[in-house]
Design a protein around this nucleic acid. Sequence first.
DNA 1: CTGTTAGCGCCTTCAT
DNA 2: ATGAAGGCGCTAACAG
Lengths: 338, 338
Amino acid sequence: MSSQAVTLADVAVEAGVHPSTVSRVLSRPQLIGEPTRTAVHAAIHKLVYTPNRAARQLAGGRVGAIGVLVPDITNPFFAHVVRSVQQGCRRNGLTMLLADTDQREADELSEARALAGSVDGFVVCSPVAATQQWLQVVGTAPLVFVNRRANGVASVALDQQAIIELGVTHLRAAGHRSIAVVRGPHSYWSSRERDRVVRRLPGLVTYGPVRPDFEAGIALATDLMRSNVTGVLAFNDVQALGIVAGYRAAGRSVPRDLSVVGSDDIADAAMSDPPLTTVAAPVQQLGDAAFDLLARLLAGAIERPEITLPVTLTVRASTLGRSSTSSTNSIATKGNHR
Amino acid sequence: MSSQAVTLADVAVEAGVHPSTVSRVLSRPQLIGEPTRTAVHAAIHKLVYTPNRAARQLAGGRVGAIGVLVPDITNPFFAHVVRSVQQGCRRNGLTMLLADTDQREADELSEARALAGSVDGFVVCSPVAATQQWLQVVGTAPLVFVNRRANGVASVALDQQAIIELGVTHLRAAGHRSIAVVRGPHSYWSSRERDRVVRRLPGLVTYGPVRPDFEAGIALATDLMRSNVTGVLAFNDVQALGIVAGYRAAGRSVPRDLSVVGSDDIADAAMSDPPLTTVAAPVQQLGDAAFDLLARLLAGAIERPEITLPVTLTVRASTLGRSSTSSTNSIATKGNHR
DNA sequence: CTGTTAGCGCCTTCAT
DNA sequence: ATGAAGGCGCTAACAG
């Protein structure tokens, strides 16, 4: 029961009005007279009334909650997205139900199914299940994909082409001739998208698919050391840092033996040894945009835009010729905005 | 509406029984006959019936959800706790409602109040509000504190005494005579607890309170450089990394000019430059213990244990005399178990 | 503008 | 062992 003793009815009594009047004050304030409205608000405040979500939902209204799914909350990238979505929720008085699929693709839809019916809409980060499945699970509830494009689904994603181009161009400019691009899991849209870009660019070697985590990066380092690759664009920062760690563990040096470019620009990138050159993603914007999109859909918007966010290159020591002092200054280059 | 077309009534029709029978199959299976039970299960499966949480809750049953509050989800420490709590939820078919208070102490209780009534219980990380307030908000719902001890509230926390002792002892053993301990925000239980320990230890300087984030650490570095302190135990890793960054930005070196010990052992600690010596917290265990505790309370347990988890020291380059090669090996020392 | 009347889907006494 | 009835707290048509 918790402290859920105060009901709408109590407030009604306190304010001397009918329950439905109180209900209206909460949902369509403009439809009631100024005096009663104030009285009701006073009563609400006095009794510390908190609406019962369950009842509200059951009665057919909005739930006042959205579901957010992430593959791995301990990945700083997703943590930031989640935080800005949460901020949006707070500002709009919504509750956030979070589910971490723990990278287990099979759990993605089941988690969603469990949440469906308890939320007004979904923000899903890097989903892997088929669009069809998703649409079926969420039914008519608004759905926003983050970092995945799909027909008929609103989405906000990073400019994958720019990520590849900025990274590769930078490495080329630094004089590298044998450049590797690490592919991510094929289940990721971003990975498939990058593959398409890479295919159009001549003279690149690809590795992987390699999981976008630290351990996989370490393992990949071994392969890289056996090759003649001198510059690599990792799938993301965490993986890039793994590559760096793998090199260090083997007594090799970055950037002397290998120039490494990451992707995301998580906090660690700037604090690592050496600081990591990376294609920075606007995480705050990502989350904000995702929330705004969902909010608009919840409000009844019918268009489902596919938003592409630009990325920028942040150059740090991991791609500088020698063991130069780490330049804290980031040389930001605007990516292609579509 | 989503795909929530299938109701308990539909299942009842399909199975040719009364709705309440279906309800019982779901809650007290042992109370109904074998044949009908199977029939009902078949119908449930066939129609892909998913119980409506709202209705279930409104009718007085369990919600099947728990609320988790964290000060900042982008802090890896909390992200890990959240993840293991979520894992527990998945295993037990529960939903997790997450609220990030964004370090805004004022929002802590209001967020909780909004969630109360929508959840069966709470796991709250590093809460700052008064125990009394918390008990009032959650009412009779089970409550578990993480990283805070409070009378009458079940909790799981780190051994703060061991954290201080391990850190200071290590610095002393390394020959440091002027050692600083950075205090965290006084609103944190862990900080107050550490203060008590520090007070009993002679010859320590204290700084702060200093916010446990990167920027605050950078700012603190300036103060540290002006002092004669040669070894510092930061409030946590993120802050410690800030101190390191501050030194580097000022052209100073860690560990040459200052030995730094962090606390938590987040992933970044091992990847930073130099790798950070830190008092490692068993984050996975923290989350697991918190969930288990809550689960037990939900199941009707009445005791409210105060669990203390041991910490270990992980020695890395940030406290090694010179710019020695970073030893990836961590020298783990058991902390005092209480 | 505000009161009245029905349920939303489920669980929980009661009966049977 | 199963059916019947009532209501959880709220919103949504309707009246008035």
